[in-house]
Design a protein around this nucleic acid. Structure first.
Lengths: 197, 197
DNA sequence: TCCTTTAAACTGACTGGTCAGTACAAATAG
DNA sequence: CTATTTGTACTGACCAGTCAGTTTAAAGGA
């Protein structure tokens, strides 16, 4: 994993297209997006989209991968810490990322559970990338005996991920006046049911 | 308010259209649905859709209202009980409903947080219908001193609703082999952070 | 019981517009 | 000199919505 490659002309263009797509996707949804609009929003010719991605679907697929890699980078634990803190760091990482890319959260949530939708295969894999990071940390809590009986690690991890996702969206959409600290507290209140004692 | 009127021809047709739409919406999403397909799935001519609803949008809007009224009916508390049990009944009601209408859960989740999407206005109201029922019960728990400090009732209610929604979807999509009892337990494990002591 | 009337309900071919994807010649950047 | 981008124009498929005509069934004679 070396540093980010010096941006070539195409990687700048791809980035512009990702940003434009995220800007548009929140309002109209994936199916409502047109390639013409994406290109216009990015300040790029339509042909450039096809030169870089080959199809609308490929652009979306790349966008999913791009977003998830950013999210994974944000929540991957930097150093080993106390299990309780580790889970809190997970929550903080999610809140930071979703605060920065709210459209991506909407995109995820609106496509994640569609079966057997076009993106289900891809999203299953990407979801696994994220939940496995959660699972690692929750497993540490389990080893420390912090989990109540009858709660298995995979379920708890997936549930935690989903919970943070929807609570954050609810915050952004229905209570934008609330501060991140307040939201952090409500999520952690829920989490305390999981990581107790 | 006399007894339920014998179903007219149109109410049967409308029901068929609701069912067909729910059957199709899980795979392609709202924007991917065509009126031709809905009509075909319902065994009805395209014109009938327009005779009964006037537009595709009106059909979807009616479907949202229909689904939420069913959900509300399912989770509305029958009789006053212990606050802890009341919250568990809320969770059980959600699980029953979402188990019966999985597509509706997908529909809700994929449109609920879209801003300023076409359905945002309607969905805000309908979300309020549901969360207010949650809020009532959670408020009882708060009165009984069961909520930890720093957790306010509206946030906790909305969070609980969202959490049950995504955990259920995750169950249906990624772990269909799990039993409802198991899922119930994982949700309640999370809830125990809220309703403790 | 059988015919007639009426309005509601339904039908499906058709229209007008939209959009993904293509083609390509000319411009520009590295 | 090569990779990339632009702009414009085009095609073919698809789809929401329309509408003139048809069917259904309930009510009312006779």
């Amino acid at each position: 994993m070396n540093g980010a490659p010096r941006p070539s002309r195409t990687s700048v263009t791809k980035q512009k297209l990702f940003d434009a797509t995220l800007r548009l996707v929140a309002t109209r949804g994936l199916a409502g997006l047109t390639v013409d609009d994406i290109a216009a929003e990015a300040g790029v010719a339509k042909g450039t989209v096809y030169y870089n991605f080959g199809s609308k679907d490929a652009l979306i697929e790349a966008l999913f991968r791009y977003g998830v890699s950013l999210l994974a980078q944000q929540i991957r634990p930097r150093e080993t810490v106390d299990p309780r803190q580790a889970v809190e760091q997970l929550v903080d990482g999610m809140l930071v990322f979703l605060g920065e890319y709210p459209s991506f959260a909407q995109l995820l949530v609106s496509e994640m559970w569609r079966t057997p939708g076009q993106w289900h295969q891809t999203l299953s894999v990407l979801r696994e990338d994220i939940t496995s990071i959660f699972r690692e940390q929750v497993a540490l809590a389990a080893d420390a005996g912090l989990l109540p009986d009858g709660v298995d690690v995979p379920t708890a991890s997936a549930g935690l991920f989903g919970t943070v996702l929807v609570v954050t969206l609810d915050w952004q959409v229905f209570h934008p006046e609330r501060s991140r600290a307040e939201v952090r507290e409500s999520v952690l209140a829920l989490v305390r049911g999981l990581i107790h004692r």
